[in-house]
Design a binder for these strands. Structure first.
Length: 489
RNA sequence: GGCGGCGUAGCCAAGCGGCUAAGGCACUGGUCUGCAAAACCAUGAUUCAGCGGUUCAAAUCCGCUCGCCGCCUCCA
């Protein structure tokens, strides 16, 4: 079963065929580090984390490069505002980025090059472009000449004429063509600068990815990824630079993920609908965010809302409850017991892994893959319910094994990786933090209620239960006493 | 204006020309319970924004219309 991926360049799903058999080389545009990361950054990191995990699960070797943009206009502006250096600011937010990524359980890429550590590679690349007459110095800057690259626009599907008609391009006296973009920027007084053949300055944004991907992955590699907003101009320009300089195809497949929206609008600071990763992690278990993000295919827009997160939590809970039920099975088997599972259910359970794979092979369809997990959980729950006290050894083994398979497959999405009890407890703690009651108070009420129940004083018992419910606490009377949880929603 | 995407049950979401249109959440009924809650079980689309067309066959392909979104400036 081949992996097929939607390639932005061809606008079709294509079979993944690594250049070097068994080895996939992937480059993803990382963050510009000048602020805390938001939920959109989380989706990007998580989407490629999932892709890499899946490819490795398929036993591909994956070399995964994700860069840090640690010098650019926004960083300079922000550093000035905070009266610090660009280096200090960028490094500080790289540290914050790692804090968020670690909480989300995102695996580190193979390498994470920083732009400022690859200035020489960029200067070399720019020099090559100048030699080939594809770039020109002007007034201390260096520009890429879009007219020198016949295929300019092939990734984003734009024509130069159309783009000029749009005419939202800043006027710049130095440019030969308004669409030409900067490769090297002369530094203004007080700005960070590096020496170059064209004077002191700093690199343009697009050139860093061309230089770093070439250094670590070569002139042609398998997959380049990023958010959909990077298609133009960033990736279009990278492609023009790299193919212009290297005279060879830059990337075989371009993967672009969709946006996270809030009330169906793209997040932005000006709209005030901006949510950082840590805002969300204060209220939800990291696996809830992961589950939510993978509840739709990576290319679709994903609308964030409290309701959606509650749904995600409920769904994840259901899967954990199923795992807990499997764990709770006691090993009392009988050789003579008749199996309770019908053959079609048994077949479905046994084909979980291959069904999961075909979902994932179809452009990493995590939404469908999640559906497979639920389908299996449903059958397992049903089976466990019908199980005699002495189940057959086969059936018992199948259930245990299915639980392990669920966990293994879920690990590709980074969910179901903690003990069910641990997840439930930690979800409870974050939920409790949102209420105005604490655990000791709840336990006191429960004690009082147990007394009332022992006295068969149902009125008082119900009154206590209602009082807690008003505070958002639900009680459950089980076989082993009363337990509590925070009411959802 | 140019380019791209989307519109499937109350909500989220699979589906990529042919098996009963996955799955989740919510709702409702049942099991359980002192009553509840949780959990579990069961149940929902003769129909896929609308209209035409291609085909033996369309949610799936083509055209048009309507609605929504993104990019064309930094952006995940």
């Amino acid at each position: 079963m081949p992996v097929t991926i939607y390639n932005t360049l061809s606008r079709k799903k294509e079979e993944l065929k690594p250049i070097e058999p068994g080895h996939i080389k992937l480059y993803v545009c990382g963050i510009t580090s000048y602020d805390y990361c938001h939920i959109g950054h989380a989706r990007s990191a998580l989407a490629f984390d999932m892709i890499v995990r899946y490819l490795r699960y398929l036993e591909y070797k994956v070399t995964y490069i994700r860069n840090f943009t640690d010098i650019d206009d926004k960083i300079i502006t922000r550093a000035n505002e905070q009266q610090t250096t660009t280096e200090e600011l960028a490094n500080r937010f790289i540290d914050e980025f790692y804090i968020d990524m670690d909480k989300l359980g995102v695996n580190r890429p193979t390498m994470e090059p920083k732009a400022t550590e690859h200035i020489q590679e960029m200067i070399d690349l720019i020099s090559e472009l100048i030699e080939k007459n594809m770039a020109y110095p002007a007034g201390g800057d260096v520009y890429y000449s879009v007219n020198s690259f016949a295929n300019y626009g092939k990734l984003s599907g734009r024509k130069l004429e159309d783009m000029q008609a749009g005419a939202r391009i800043s006027i710049n006296e130095n440019k030969k063509d308004p669409m030409d973009f900067v490769l090297w920027k002369a530094s203004k007084p007080g700005e960070p600068k590096w020496e170059s053949p064209w004077g002191a300055g700093r690199p343009g944004w697009h050139i860093e990815c061309s230089a770093m991907s070439r250094k670590y992955l070569g002139s042609t590699f398998d997959i380049h990824g990023g958010g959909q907003d990077l298609i133009f101009p960033h990736h279009e320009n990278e492609l023009a630079q790299s193919e212009g300089a290297n005279d060879t195809s830059f990337v075989n497949m371009w993967i672009h993920h969709g946006f996270v929206t809030i009330r169906d609008e793209k997040m932005s600071k000006s709209l005030g609908n901006f949510l950082t990763i840590r805002d969300i992690l204060d209220h939800y278990h990291p696996e809830v965010l992961r589950f939510f993000i993978f509840s739709t295919q990576y290319r679709n827009p994903l609308d964030f809302s409290e309701t959606a997160m509650q749904n995600a939590m409920a769904g994840l809970n259901r899967l954990y409850e199923c795992l807990a039920a499997i764990e709770a099975l006691e090993d009392h088997c009988s050789d003579t017991a008749t199996p309770t599972m019908n053959s079609s259910d048994k077949e479905k359970i046994e084909s979980l892994e291959s069904n999961f794979q075909s979902a994932m092979n179809n452009d990493f369809n995590t939404a469908k893959a999640q559906g497979m997990l639920f389908e299996t959980a449903k059958i397992i729950n049903k089976t466990i319910r019908q199980l005699p006290t002495q189940p057959s050894q086969d059936e018992f083994t199948l259930l245990k094994k299915s639980g392990d398979t669920i966990k293994k497959l879920a690990s590709i999405m980074g969910i179901l990786q903690v003990q069910p009890s641990e997840f439930l407890a930690s979800a409870k703690a974050t939920m409790l933090a949102k209420t105005d009651i604490d655990e000791t108070e709840i336990l006191e009420y429960i004690e009082q209620r147990i007394q009332a129940r022992n006295d068969k004083d149902w009125a008082k018992s119900d009154e206590i239960r209602d009082r807690l419910l008003k505070k958002g606490i639900e009680l459950k009377d089980g076989a082993d006493g009363t337990s509590w949880s925070v009411k959802r929603g």
